[in-house]
Amino acid sequence: MNRWVLRAVGMSIVHIAARTVLGIVIVEAPLHGTTLKFVALAIVLLVALIWAGIDGIVDARRHEDPDDREDLIMVWIKAGVVTALISGVVCYIIDQAGVSGIGATSFFFEITSGAAGTALMIIAPAAVGLLVGRWLGRREHKSERDEELYEEREAHELHA
């Protein structure tokens, strides 16, 4: 399975679940809607950020040379676009099935403007996560190399 397909399916599940639970809870407790919207948004953003961060760390550890690293931003761009389309269609269907409060509008909106917003909610934190993850993974390589160089210098000074 392609890496982006796994991420698209996973992020679609997270986004659809957040939007559905948010819709149900807002109908039951309408006074807490604003707070709950921020919580649902934060969950989606954090999942993308952490998952991409882990991808970045793993890739940096696997490939010490930056030129050998995978193009993970394209993986996350594809995942974000597919997630946006899938979740827009599914949320529209859920809304048409009678789950009130999910906030679905017209089908055209869900697969255009709504999808653009959703894609941005995936791609932007994923880019930050990749950046931080690769920095952390590279930092680990540097500390290992620094330790090896220090040991070599000590051994050279003892023999000199």
Rank of each mutant, 00 (worst) to 15 (best):
V44M: 08
R3C: 02
L41D: 05
R19H: 06
M121T: 05
V47P: 02
I122D: 01
M121G: 07
A48S: 13
G129V: 05
E151D: 12
E144W: 08
Q96P: 02
R62Q: 13
E147G: 04
E154N: 10
F109C: 05
A116T: 13
W4H: 07
W4K: 04
W135D: 10
I57K: 07
D71F: 09
V14S: 04
R134Q: 15
A124S: 05
T112K: 08
F107D: 06
L45E: 03
L31C: 08
V25C: 03
V81F: 10
T20F: 00
Y150M: 14
T20W: 02
I16N: 01
G114C: 01
K37C: 07
I57N: 01
S100P: 03
I77W: 13
E110W: 03
H32L: 14
L45D: 02
G137M: 08
W76T: 06
G137V: 06
G101Q: 01
W4C: 01
R138T: 15
L120D: 03
T112E: 10
G133E: 08
G101N: 05
M1I: 05
N2W: 02
R153A: 13
L120H: 05
E147L: 12
L36G: 04
N2A: 02
G56N: 08
V128I: 15
E70L: 11
L49S: 04
M74T: 15
Q96C: 05
V132H: 03
S12P: 03
L149V: 09
L131F: 15
R7W: 06
E110I: 04
A116W: 09
V128Q: 07
R153N: 13
L49V: 01
K142S: 11
C91V: 12
L31H: 12
I111E: 04
T105M: 14
W51E: 11
S87C: 03
V14M: 05
I93S: 06
A104R: 03
D55V: 04
A40H: 00
V128F: 14
E110L: 06
I57P: 00
I94K: 01
I102N: 00
L120G: 10
V75L: 11
R134D: 07
L136Q: 11
D59M: 11
A48N: 07
V14N: 02
R153H: 11
D67N: 14
I93Y: 04
E140D: 14
P66H: 12
L49G: 02
G88A: 01
A97F: 10
L136E: 12
K78E: 08
I93Q: 07
L41F: 04
H159D: 15
L41A: 10
E144R: 14
R138N: 15
I123C: 05
T112H: 03
T34D: 13
S113R: 14
H15Y: 10
Q96H: 04
I26Q: 06
E28Y: 09
I122E: 02
L36C: 03
E147W: 09
T20C: 02
A97T: 15
H141K: 13
Y150P: 04
D59R: 12
L46C: 06
D95A: 14
F109R: 10
L130R: 03
G10S: 06
D95I: 03
V25F: 08
V9N: 00
I122S: 01
L131G: 04
G53I: 07
H156L: 15
I57D: 03
